[in-house]
Design a protein around this nucleic acid. Structure first.
Length: 490
RNA sequence: GUGAGUGUAGCUCAGCUUGGAUAGAGCGCCAGGUUGUGGCCCUGGUGGCCGUGGGUUCAAAUCCCAUCACUCACCCCA
């Protein structure tokens, strides 16, 4: 009966993926590398639910983020009631939903800090790895469900020096992570405070700041011309002076970082008509770069860039911002950024009446994996267990004798006790070629052959053990086999 | 949300322009060659509502319309 029923098409939700065992091996290895670095720096793991109450999520990401959030409908009677209200025009459609899938891991962290502020040590250094969801249109390197790996420090205003130090610590960690992964990257760094100052001097009002940032973000793609055009589209007409100022900034040679920050400071002070005596953005950035240069001199000069044109999209950033891309231009073009983050001092304050300085980085694990695979970096293959137990005898076709099976079970149990993964071939009793072929396909590293008429309860009984990667076969006792298997583990 | 492209076997694709008889290939899968030890080779076999619905026609994988799905670009980002 059931086989006549209409079949359900096996398919995934758009933009979401399965990770098959081979892919999982790669993922787990990379995640392991990251985790190791995080723990070296003293970060602790955290997990939070996939769903959050809608009010926790909303109002944190900006208009675009709002649109791209997956929402979850109310249920039961509550849904009925909301439906009535919406139909009657008494409530907006959004009234039908009360929860949403998390859009990133930063807002949930802010919620956690707000909820457990008395229990958590400050500064709170945590990492979190898990899926986030965005209702984007998928493209290469862009998914609707993807794994984010966040490392954040939530500090306390009482420790004012450490508060500044946090940014440098996060950036050092980023450099260490990519060194461990052996990926060549650039870290572009700027500051929202600097952008605010630039925005003001260019003659753009404060309420257009987000538009200004998003327009500025276009610089990478189409230069100053595109930025000006984009600003126009957003209803911002720059004064000639403003355009000249921005052009000067964009053409600034930033190869000498500290020097160029000083130059920008001067430009800001000069262009401000006496409004600015100094630039807080520049001051902070200079301090940050100097700190990193003293912590990790060689790495810093290799990876760090100062980019006054960097903007970043999320609303909640308040200070230092940065973005990670590969040095390889093609990869950079096709994947975009593989990580990014910044300072978000005001986020916890959206929940409670206390503010916590905080900074974090988000690694785009999926893109990092894609890049490692493209670059052909060697990644350990999955193994489906050390040893497959197969039978030489075929008592009656495909039906091994109870005696033969109990021998296999006995051997398997002994191997397990010695910590060797071992399983009885699903084709146990089929012709040998078939059993070996299957063992290869199931990614076993060895096969052990139970021969006809062996009494295996004797101490010194030996078996044919074949190493599948080389084809080498030896006759060994179980102890010797265990030794061989362990030797060949890398 | 806007624009473009693609849907044919488990997978990658050919065929479509110019409609015509049992819709092909490679890979995979299954069986055998192999009285029993995988990968190579050879032989045979399995496998298709040609995305879905409608239209044109004596006749549609092929032409037209609609629809859905996927891919790419924009947007935005990880």
């Amino acid at each position: 009966m059931s086989n006549q029923a209409k079949k359900i098409t096996p398919a995934l939700p758009r933009g979401m993926r399965d990770y098959l065992p081979d892919q999982m091996a790669v993922r787990q290895k990379i995640i392991e590398t990251l985790r190791r670095v995080f723990e070296l720096y003293g970060f602790q793991p955290l997990e939070t639910p996939a769903m959050e109450r809608l009010e926790v999520l909303s109002g944190k990401y900006g208009e675009e983020g709002e649109k791209l959030s997956f929402r979850v409908m109310k249920r039961g009677a509550e849904l009925e009631r909301a439906l009535e209200k919406v139909k009657a025009g008494e409530a907006p459609v959004s009234e039908l939903c009360d929860m949403g899938l998390r859009y990133d891991l930063t807002v949930p962290l802010a919620r956690v800090v707000a909820m457990y502020r008395d229990k958590l040590p400050l500064p709170f250094k945590r990492y979190q790895i898990g899926p986030v969801w965005r209702a984007d249109r998928p493209q290469h390197g862009r998914y609707r469900e993807f794994t984010q790996c966040d490392v954040d420090i939530v500090g306390t205003e009482e420790l004012s020096y450490h508060t500044k130090f946090m940014d440098a610590e996060i950036l050092c960690l980023v450099m260490d992570v990519f060194s461990a992964l052996n990926i060549e990257i650039d870290i572009r760094i700027s500051s929202r405070k600097l952008l605010e100052e630039i925005c003001e001097i260019s003659g753009i009002s404060n309420d257009k700041f987000d538009d200004f940032c998003q327009a500025l973000d276009k610089y990478d793609k189409g230069g100053m011309k595109l930025v000006v055009e984009d600003l126009k589209l957003r209803g911002i007409n720059l004064s000639t002076q403003g355009i000249i100022f921005l052009r000067e900034l964009s053409e600034l040679n930033t190869s000498k970082i500290i020097l160029s920050i000083d130059q920008i400071k001067n430009k800001i002070v000069n262009n401000s008509k006496g409004e600015f005596q100094d630039s807080i953005g520049c001051f902070d950035l200079k301090e940050l770069f100097e700190t990193i240069f003293s912590l990790r001199p060689s790495m810093a000069s290799k990876f760090l860039l100062f980019d006054p044109m960097l903007a970043r999209g999320l609303d909640y950033y308040t200070g230092t911002i940065f973005e990670i891309t590969t040095k390889d231009k093609n990869l950079r073009q096709s994947f975009g950024s593989i990580g990014g983050g910044g300072r978000y001092d005001g986020l916890v304050e959206k929940f409670i009446d206390k503010s916590f300085p905080a900074i974090g980085i988000s690694f785009g694990i999926d893109r990092i994996i894609d890049i490692l695979l493209i670059e052909g970096k060697e990644i350990e293959m999955a193994t489906g267990g050390a040893i497959a137990i197969i039978s030489q005898s075929q008592d009656s076709p495909h039906t091994p004798s109870p005696q033969s099976i109990s021998q296999a079970g006995y051997v398997q149990d002994l191997l397990h006790l010695k910590g060797i993964s071992a399983y009885i071939s699903p084709y146990y009793g089929y012709r040998l070629g078939k059993q070996i072929e299957t063992a290869v396909r199931m990614k076993a590293r060895f096969v052990l052959i139970i021969e006809d008429g062996v009494s295996i309860d004797k101490e010194d009984v030996s078996f044919g053990i074949k190493r599948l990667s080389t084809g080498e076969q030896r006759r060994l006792t179980l102890d010797e086999a265990v030794k061989w298997i362990k030797e060949t583990e890398q």
